[in-house]
């Protein structure tokens, strides 16, 4: 079964998220708990703002399968709902065509990277 990995809408008001880390690569066997990507969401992206409402999230897989494609590269800016990868539940099935459904994901709020400058 072909599943789509889609960028969740982390906030009602978010328009995009920026990928800050990629934890896996196509061909990787996935299991519940496999980290996929980290995403930075800045609700002030449309305009500069004092103390911008920025949050960081990690997407973690909740399915067994094989990652067949991952289009989310570090630094890429994506809209909520954007397809960022494809998963097949078995290694030898085709990864073409329309996915049956979205892959189930865990969304976790993570700490910002520890950089002062």
């Amino acid at each position: 079964m072909l599943l789509a990995i889609e960028l969740p809408r982390f906030h009602e008001l978010m328009t995009t998220g920026v990928v800050t880390a990629v934890h896996t690569a196509p061909g990787t066997a996935l299991a519940p708990g496999t980290p996929l990507i980290d995403v930075r969401v800045d609700l002030s992206e449309a305009a500069a703002q004092d103390c911008p409402p920025v949050s960081w999230f990690r997407l973690v897989c909740r399915e067994h399968g094989v990652l067949r494609a991952l289009t989310a590269a570090e630094g890429s800016e994506l809209a909520p709902g954007a397809r960022i990868g494809l998963v097949t539940t078995t290694p030898d099935e085709a990864s073409t065509g329309e996915p049956m459904r979205a892959a189930r994901l865990t969304v976790a709020g993570i700490l910002p990277p520890d950089t002062a400058w």
Partner: peptide, 13 residues
């Protein structure tokens, strides 16, 4: 509390 967080299991972290 983070309204949009959905962590069912802490083992992966």
């Amino acid at each position: 509390t983070l309204g949009t967080e959905q962590v069912q299991c802490y083992a992966p972290f």
